[in-house]
């Protein structure tokens, strides 16, 4: 994920899916449009909780830029527990800049609780509203291809990050700006380089190395046992 340079500063491998979000927000503001961010069907009660929270981190890091450019994103959620969280993130960003009167809670939309209906509803928003970029970050299934298809029909730039394998299979052919698996959890570090994010990324790397070493050792031991017996 990242390399330690000569200085002690952590260098993070660039992930275009997150790096381009800010520039896409600027482009949306220039063109009088907006970004659509689909957070997916994961909620706060279930196996996709952390994935959804990681997706909300992206919204949080993007919110200030969007407020400054006066181009708030349209955020669609497929689980109602994410709705108040996403609305709160956007409202806080407006509060930080003293523009709370401009805050519109309808920028965050609960579309439908079923995955396919959510994808169809989000696709309809991409097709019919002034969307200039389409980002899909969070918990999805293969139905995400309905959203990417809507984006492709309008020739929109598309960015995606997902952890589920069936969603990755659907997203890989749709966009080359795709954060795969664990890269989704590096969004905060990638977009802000704040210490709390980079430290957790380092912890993740150390754990991964330890796990890889353990697997390699176990495999070698198993091989040796077979060869020697």
């Amino acid at each position: 994920m990242k390399l330690l340079g000569r200085s002690s500063r952590v260098r993070i491998r660039p992930l275009t899916s997150f790096q381009d979000l800010r520039s896409e927000t600027g482009r949306a503001a220039e063109g009088g449009g907006t970004i659509h961010i689909a957070i997916g069907n994961g909620g706060l009660i279930g196996e996709n909780t952390v994935t959804s929270l990681a997706a909300l981190e992206v919204v949080e890091e993007l919110a200030d830029t969007a407020v400054l450019y006066n181009a708030p994103p349209i955020i669609t959620v497929g689980d109602p527990t994410l709705l108040p969280l996403a609305q709160d993130i956007l409202r806080r960003a407006y509060e930080r800049h003293g523009l709370v009167k401009r805050y519109n809670p309808d920028q965050v939309r609960f579309v439908a609780p079923s995955p396919v209906a959510y994808a169809a509803g989000a696709a309809s928003i991409v097709m019919t509203e002034d969307v200039t970029s389409n980002a899909m970050i969070g918990a999805f299934g293969p139905e995400v291809s309905l959203i990417t298809d809507a984006g492709a029909r309008r020739d929109l730039p598309q960015l995606a990050a997902a952890a589920a394998l069936d969603a990755l299979g659907a997203l890989y052919p749709a966009t080359d700006r795709l954060a795969v698996g664990e890269e989704l959890y590096a969004a905060g570090a990638q977009m802000t380089e704040k210490r709390r994010y980079t430290i957790s990324l380092q912890a993740q790397d150390i754990l991964r190395l330890a796990l890889a070493a353990f697997i390699a050792m176990a495999a070698t031991l198993a091989l040796l046992t077979v060869l020697l017996s």
Binding site: A163, E182, A186, L207
Partner: peptide
């Protein structure tokens, strides 16, 4: 993903 989930 498991490592990322745990750390996040």
């Amino acid at each position: 993903v498991v490592l990322g989930t745990a750390v996040t």
